[in-house]
Amino acid sequence: MQILYFAGIRELTKEKERQCPVPVATVHELLLTLSARYGTAFRQKVFNGDGQLSDVVIVLVNGRDIRHLNGLETPLAAEDTVCIFPVVAGG
């Protein structure tokens, strides 16, 4: 499973991408695993105070926003690509 980081998320991970080190079944499990790796600042970025997905990140699984899938419970498979963005905009 490939995980890609963009914009301000890269400042927290200090890397652009990574292969998931352990098997995870859902986006929630993945973000918990990554929070353990990257620390508090990353965790506080991706989760809000209630442990739900923060509203300042966008998570895509194979290019689909998880808000249109099953949110944090979106299932993951080994061949999936997960992208984590901060909320960005422009035009």
């Binding site: 914009a7 301000g8 895509l60 290019g63 689909r64 992208c83 901060p86 960005v88 422009g90």
Partner: peptide
């Protein structure tokens, strides 16, 4: 976005998210 995002990365930050979707 208005507070920090655009100042740090500018509008060109959109390239990657548009590409990924």
């Amino acid at each position: 976005v208005g507070g920090t995002g655009l100042r740090v990365y500018g509008t060109d930050v959109l390239v990657n998210i548009l590409n990924q979707i």
